[in-house]
Design a protein around this nucleic acid. Structure first.
Lengths: 300, 300
DNA sequence: ATGAAAGCGCTAACAT
DNA sequence: ATGTTAGCGCTTTCAT
């Protein structure tokens, strides 16, 4: 069997793609989100005989290591996740000159660079969630946000505001996508506005925490307070009591699409079509935003 | 900066190790288990400047692909997880001749090969769990097992039997480590033995499903039925109602240790010591079994 | 001590 | 169509 090192030496191709996950906190892995994306990515990569090199970064010092690795030309491209606003990674990556697709719309304001990303329609999905609540006759609708240094959280908040134009600011409380902090946020919301009749939580994990607090306070869901989440993580959304009405995003498909866009950009695209939200068939890959769907269960 | 391909061509080293996760079902990623192991592995590898190449196998056909990759000499070694009894992977790996450390005791009976693995003391932990229940005065103790084609599940069942020597066979029901099937198993247990007063579930996820069924049937935990889990996955065990008494295993440490053993076997061991359950300091790496601890919360 | 050269195993370009 | 050869960028050996 052929020796890969010799092969790469002459072809300058490695058939390997780096997946960079910035994991500043413990949170990332408490959450099936990354696992699902990874799975989508893995499927697409193996279908193209490319390997997945996983780069987990725990802190600032790791960033330089990742930058070095990417610049070292070990991989043909990179898939990068969960950038926060102040993240030095994009700069490093650009300097490394590696073809990259981002997971989620990057947050930096610099419009000069043309970046390719895959995201869900967070804003549209949030609007649909809140409109659903309003359609149920709810008027005092609270929102538990995600961490506002991530665009997904900001976009969902914007969607909330699109519908609740004059929302009482006390009805919005920032949280961090974890169940535990979802509990804290729900308590705060209830303390500020005991008369609220609905909550839109920025993800399912947060919603599950909120549900627990509601029950603990003796409030019935959905009769007293209706709850909508975001993500539709099956193991969470179907197991809550009551089962969660939520905005579904196809996370595995996002991963698959990221890999596909990257591979295509690397000229390995074989003209394959199909799949919802496909980017332009020929030419340079462009960002794609996938649609979301409201899944009605019992909580709203 | 140096070209890695050229470097590997002459040094025959890649500073990369493969992590192979056999993922026959969807389950693997619903479960934070692998994420935690991965994190431990990643930490140790990056500390030694080695890269992590992730190989996910979805089905039989993927096995040959993995075998080919491993035999292709792309990586210096492999870390292999979640083997089932009938798994063709070990054979392929051995044929590929790649240094390997297994996660969890491999199940095949062939004692001829000397394999290196890292595992928790599943049997001992299970014994401790059941003794705790017995110490609470419980007599009709049920056991919801994991999938019995995995050694971890078998070992925990053996631990259960060590204490409950003459256990009524109806008190044992096989499950698959998921919350949903945990519910099913708990119902079955209750239908068979309405008088049971305790349950040892083979993992926390299963226990959480059992807890839900118990509440749904109006049984109080721990007054009517005491429950002990296994794993101590914080996001699960602390969030259940009531919080779960469980057997803790240090999953991240297992991952770290696997990587350390492998690296040492590759002669990259720099004499580093420390860490519980460390294998022999010099010489070839040997398997290590990490201790478990009972964590008392409210459910038993 | 520093520098020149051979060769790792492959692919691509060239010659037959 | 098949066979031959240069050279990818590094490390290691050997000579200065």
């Amino acid at each position: 069997m052929p020796n890969q090192a010799a092969r790469s030496l002459v072809t300058k191709r490695h058939d390997a793609v780096a997946v960079v996950i910035a994991e500043p906190e413990t949170r990332v892995f408490a959450d099936p989100f990354f696992a699902l994306q990874l799975r989508g990515i893995s499927k697409e990569l193996t279908a193209h005989d490319a390997q997945l090199v996983l780069l987990l970064t725990e802190g600032r010092d790791d960033h330089t290591r990742v930058g070095r690795y990417l610049a070292g030309g070990h991989v043909d491209g990179a898939l990068v996740f969960s950038l926060h606003l102040d993240d030095p990674l994009p700069g490093l990556i650009q300097r490394a000159g590696v073809p990259t697709v981002f997971g989620g719309r990057p947050g930096w304001s610099d419009g000069s660079r043309r970046v390719v990303y895959v995201d869900s329609d967070n804003r549209g999905g949030a609007r649909e969630a809140v409109r659903h609540l309003a359609g149920l006759g709810r008027r005092r609708i609270g929102h538990i946000t995600g961490p506002l240094d991530q665009t997904s959280a900001v976009d969902r908040l914007d969607g909330f505001r699109d519908v609740m134009v004059d929302a009482d600011p006390r009805l919005i409380v920032e949280s961090d996508f974890t169940p535990a902090d979802g509990e804290r946020a729900m308590r705060e919301l209830l303390d500020r506005c005991p008369d609220l009749d609905a909550v839109f939580a920025a993800n399912d994990l947060t919603a599950s925490g909120a549900l627990r607090v509601l029950r603990e306070r003796g409030l019935r869901v959905p009769e007293d307070v209706a709850v909508v989440g975001f993500d539709d993580m099956l193991p969470v959304a179907e197991q809550t009591d009551p089962p969660l009405t939520t905005v579904r995003q196809d996370i595995e498909e996002m991963g698959r699409l990221m890999a596909r866009l990257l591979l295509r950009g690397l000229d390995r695209g074989d003209g394959e079509t199909g799949g919802a939200g496909e980017a332009a068939v020929g030419g340079a890959p462009r960002s794609v935003v996938l649609p979301t769907t409201l899944i009605r269960r019992a909580s709203a």
